[in-house]
Nucleic acid binder design. Sequence first.
DNA 1: ATCTATTTGTACGTATGTATT
DNA 2: AAATACATACGTACAAATAGA
Lengths: 254, 254
Amino acid sequence: MPPATTRSKPEPRLSRPVQVAEAIKDWVVEQGLQAGDRLPGEAELIERFGMAKGTIREAMRILEAQGLIKTRTGPGGGSFVHEVSRQRAKALLGNYFYFKNLTIGDIYQLRLALEPELAASLAGNLSDDVLDQLAANIAQYSEPATTVDEERQQHVASLRFHAILAEQAQNPLLGFVIDFMVNLLSDLTVYRRLYSPPNLELWEQGRDHQERLVAALRDGDADLARDIMRDHMETAWALMRRQEVSMERRFISE
Amino acid sequence: MPPATTRSKPEPRLSRPVQVAEAIKDWVVEQGLQAGDRLPGEAELIERFGMAKGTIREAMRILEAQGLIKTRTGPGGGSFVHEVSRQRAKALLGNYFYFKNLTIGDIYQLRLALEPELAASLAGNLSDDVLDQLAANIAQYSEPATTVDEERQQHVASLRFHAILAEQAQNPLLGFVIDFMVNLLSDLTVYRRLYSPPNLELWEQGRDHQERLVAALRDGDADLARDIMRDHMETAWALMRRQEVSMERRFISE
DNA sequence: ATCTATTTGTACGTATGTATT
DNA sequence: AAATACATACGTACAAATAGA
């Protein structure tokens, strides 16, 4: 009689809570639940899966950590399907890059390739409201900074200009990637004191780029917008090149 | 430094497990723990935080869900800092785009902007081993497919070509984004039966591109590699354009 | 191969907190 | 203001996995 135990298990079986979490995810997809829809309560899940409260709770925490559900207490409370927020997605992805050592150059290689495309695709497609927002943003750093702290604020604000554009992207993938990179650079600015352009000329040139870019976007001139953005990226890169340094290793929460 | 990322919302209030998870993350960063380092055991954490076992366990599950720790039972077991895997990062990010409705065009807009840059940066920097891998990959679809199933396999394999390149990227950000997009397209192929080029001519042209690309990479001709990849992306996009369709909505586990 | 020690994993009962009506 | 419905937290007991003797 052949040995019935021929199971070779190199994979360390998934823990119960993870299994439950996966099962719930599958169930949600299967049921076609949408954001906002309510999941079965703890009690029902305990019965459905035949597991203890703690196990179910751990499973819910896993889903919550991934941004897929939100939980409320009180009557009518419970767990609800939740659209993963951009903020959460950026935080989770940021944890991945915590272990890589990204350089400024790495980020700018992508910005240089992507932001001109974004600019071109937005030309003529922005509302007056957004265009005014952009103009107002530029106004925050129209005058040279007088203190180091002010310089830092201006630097973050000038990055915010690009976050506003990313927000407007029709292409969610393009918008996300650019937004994510802007976040990385903002964090760099805040945590590594990586700011303060020692080169006033380049700085003014960058601000000028943004102003001309807004005009091109307003006029709906896609090619011009792309060219300006390309110049702008090259200027910004040059500004930071001397500060070439690897990212501080840290986690991101949300 | 606490992970006080640019937050704009007065969140309701974080649950205890989330607080604990954050505290542990901060502690790990503060202690400068590296991947593989052991965290305090359950018992010690219970005492350190003065909380119940279940609460601590939920906190650990949060960190585990984010891919930041791995847990083992047994003597010498416990929780260990873990480098977030690329696979995990792609899965978590995929959940974000589950709710967006990405189109093929969205993905190709980025591929067209990024993959030529990757190709250029890899020219002359690939080992013979990798170059052979690429050549072997192309061989998998050198002959026209005879069955529908074979066509699907070939299509996935031709995407794998780009995953191999992405793996070799010096720029982790560039590599990740391309790898992620290739995954999205692979999933599309498998789950939406989005494959089978009805246009044999374009298909052969694409295969030819890959062959010439490998040659350019071997010769270290960056500009040529970039040009070929650009053509290749345009061909591939054209191949899929008629299949323009939004992604099937589904979660990704890992 | 078996036992033993260590550490996480599961179960369950009870009490507390919180938000809606 | 009180009752209600739900998640949240705690503590203990026991089960399972694994490394090492």
